[in-house]
Amino acid sequence: MVKVLYFAKLREDLGKAAEEVALPGDVTTVAALRAYLMARGAAWQTALAQGRALRVAVNQHVADPATPIRAGDEVAFFPPVTGG
């Protein structure tokens, strides 16, 4: 299981702030998790679409598509930041 978090517009679009996801054996990277979540349906397809500005963090560190994911990790998806 991994803990997956969604923030800001993504959280609203998906109607979800956090969830536990059971990882299939072949989901071992950020890119694979993104593809796995997108397969859930239209809302997911749109929110996580390739080419859409999307940032990912693994265990609270900025990650990229190739970053590995292991059971127990915390993975967060969010839009580009707009603080300050």
Binding site: F7, A8, A57, F78, V81, T82, G83, G84
Partner: peptide, 14 residues
């Protein structure tokens, strides 16, 4: 610090 905060710290404004 302000320039980096605005582009790297996870905050979002609505």
């Amino acid at each position: 610090i302000m320039d980096y905060l605005k582009t790297r710290a996870p905050f979002w404004k609505k």
